[in-house]
Design a protein around this nucleic acid. Structure first.
Lengths: 208, 208
DNA sequence: AAACTAGACTGGACCGTCCAGTTTGATTTG
DNA sequence: CAAATCAAACTGGACGGTCCAGTCTAGTTT
């Protein structure tokens, strides 16, 4: 287990935690190192002992957040390779996706990265690869499975996966981006939104 | 016409132009007033004669950009109220939407506003209202028309409009947000993307 | 007379460094 | 086993250097 942490590790985690909060709220330029140190309850010198610059700290923070986000998603979404009908699989996928991705923390991360794309383009690429792209890849693999079973009809599976993904996520994500965390869908609405997305998708991609 | 501008107006426009470029590239905190004055070829004092603070200038710049964006869209998208079949209308709508919205300038504006949503929430609301919401409202009205003609079958027209909108825009917009302006679709790809979006939508919402 | 210029200036924020001392926790020693 | 020792980690606060919003002044253009 990773239970026993050294003092160094605990300090480092405290700094990363404090920095995450302040960067997420204030952006890269809006956050300052004195406050990060204060919130982490650590001297400024210690911050610089662990991270040699504000930029390095920022990169570590954001990479950590995107990595965790990607992993959580990876683990929770069920595999398609059983005998469930495609409709059930898509419904579960959509609901999980909505509840995992549509959290204040992840929406703030997304805003932060988007706002800094000019300054840190690699963060945008990383969030893209671990976020939407990862979901689309998973869906593509599931679709290959369901195509063999004759439950779906499509030439370009990745394109189909992308359409389904944005059918589900497009509205909610973009509302949350522009309207703030208050626009995040309640769990109730997620169900019916997912349901209608699945209906539309299957109307277009189910054989017959 | 608005051809003859006073000196004051010309100066003001030069400042707004320079500020737009720098804010779009560097963000609110990343841009500075000395450079804005220099690029506008104007003294700093003059900048402050026209805008009493950096924040006021920023708000004017962003409101101007979102207003123009909304208007251009408003004017160019054709009215649905003729006897074209719904497929043709949707195809044109989608292609226009893609070419008008997916420009570097508008994507930069979107990134800027998203990055500053915490600091300036009203800008997020404005961009939402004049961007996605406006398109969705237009579509809703068109759908009401087509429903009367029996060319579409849906209970909640606004929900249907939203699904169509994000079927078209979801992937492209979000790619451009995270991957930068290089990820903007070439005109060629817009056509087929729009085509497939229309096919999916009509498979789910055309009667029969 | 109104609008604008050039550039010096103020006050404050903030990154990153420095340094003299203290705490922590493990190891060694009596 | 308890006391002494020790290196690494951390403290707290001062400080240099830079950047920048906003003001001021004295002069120029239209």
């Amino acid at each position: 287990m990773t239970v026993a942490k050294t003092r160094q590790e605990r300090t480092r985690d405290a700094i990363l935690d404090a920095a995450a909060g302040l960067f997420l709220r204030n952006g890269f330029l809006g956050a300052n190192m004195d406050e990060i140190a204060a919130v982490a309850d650590v001297s400024k010198q210690t911050v610089y002992a662990h991270f040699h610059s504000k930029e390095a700290l920022f990169l570590d923070v954001v990479r950590g957040l995107t990595g965790v986000a990607g992993d959580v998603h990876q683990e929770q979404v069920a595999e398609p390779l059983d005998d469930r009908p495609i409709g059930d699989y898509l419904q579960e996928f959509a609901e999980l996706q909505l509840t995992i991705v549509m959290t204040p923390r992840l929406m703030q991360l997304r805003r932060l990265v988007i706002g800094e794309v000019e300054r840190f383009p690699e963060l945008g690429r990383a969030l893209h690869a671990l976020g939407p792209q990862r979901s689309i890849n998973r869906l593509s693999r599931a679709f290959a499975h369901y195509r063999k079973l004759g439950q779906i009809k499509a030439d370009d599976l990745e394109a189909a996966a992308s359409f389904f993904n944005w059918l589900v996520m497009g509205g909610p994500v973009n509302d949350a981006m522009l309207l703030g965390d208050g626009a995040i869908l309640p769990a109730q609405a997620c169900r019916s939104h997912a349901q209608e997305s699945v209906r539309i998708f299957l109307a277009a991609f189910a054989p017959r």
